Computed example of a mutant assay.
Amino acid sequence: MTSLAERQAELVAALTAGAAVPPGFDARLVEAARVALLRKRAGEVARQWPDLVHALGTGWYRQWSAWAATRPTRGSLRDGWDLARELAGRGELPAAAGAELAAREASLVYDGENVPRFRRMPAVRASAGSLVIQIAGRVRVLRHG
C-alpha cells in the first residue's frame, strides 16, 4: 500500500505534469481539474506577459496549453519567460513580443533554473527584431521589431 504522500504526489503529477491518473481517481474529473488549472495558469502568465499573449492572438491558449501540459508551474513570470524563450529559439516568437522578452532579459538575470533577479550591470538584449538597453535600472527600447 502506498502512503498518502505518494498518492498525493501521483495526483499532483497527473494534474500538472501530464502523468497518468493514479488508480482510484475518476479520470474524467482529474482531466477537468487539469484543464481548469491550465486555464488558471494561462491567465496568470497573461498578466505577466501581455505583449506575448496579444502577439499570439487567438492562438495563445492553444500554444500555451501545448507547451504547459507536461510542465509543472514554476510561477507565471518564469513560465511565460520559458515559453517566450522556446518560441524565440524556434524562430516563432512574434516580433510584437520580442521587445517584451528583450526587456525582461535586459533587466533581470534568469538562467532558466533559478529565480530571476535584478541585473546590476548595464545590458543590451535583442529578440525577434527588437533591441533593448538597460542602464541604471532603466530599460529603453531602441528598436521595436
Rank of each mutant, 00 (worst) to 15 (best):
Q63L: 04
M121D: 15
A96H: 00
R41N: 06
L37W: 10
V109L: 13
T73D: 06
A42S: 15
W81T: 07
W64Q: 08
Y110I: 07
G112S: 09
R125K: 11
A5Y: 00
A9Q: 10
R28G: 15
S127K: 10
A13F: 08
R119S: 03
P116Y: 05
E44I: 03
R90C: 01
L93I: 00
R119Y: 12
R34H: 05
V115G: 05
A95H: 04
D51Q: 07
L83I: 07
P50G: 02
G24W: 02
A27F: 06
V53C: 03
V30D: 07
P23F: 02
E113M: 11
A9R: 10
E105F: 02
A123Q: 14
A20F: 01
P23W: 04
Q8I: 07
V53K: 01
P50I: 07
S107Y: 08
A69Y: 04
E86M: 08
A88S: 04
A97E: 09
M121C: 08
R34N: 09
E113T: 15
L87G: 00
V109N: 13
P23C: 03
G80M: 06
R78G: 04
F118D: 09
L15Q: 07
G75Y: 01
P23E: 06
R85P: 06
R125D: 10
V30R: 08
A17G: 15
A5M: 06
L15P: 11
A103G: 13
G18S: 12
S127H: 04
E44V: 05
W49Y: 00
L37F: 09
V109R: 11
D79H: 01
E113V: 15
R78Q: 13
Q63D: 10
A17Y: 09
V30L: 10
R119W: 07
A102N: 07
A128P: 10
V21C: 12
T73H: 08
A13D: 14
V45H: 08
A84F: 02
P23A: 13
L101T: 06
L87Q: 05
R85W: 01
A36C: 09
G112N: 12
L37K: 06
A55S: 03
W67A: 03
W81G: 00
A66Q: 14
P116R: 01
A68D: 01
A17W: 10
A5W: 00
A84H: 00
L29Y: 11
F25L: 02
G89S: 09
R34S: 07
G57K: 09
M121S: 14
P72H: 05
A19W: 10
V21M: 06
F118E: 13
G91A: 09
R71K: 12
E92W: 02
E92D: 12
G129T: 11
A123G: 12
D26W: 01
A68G: 08
E86D: 14
L11K: 00
A19V: 12
M121L: 15
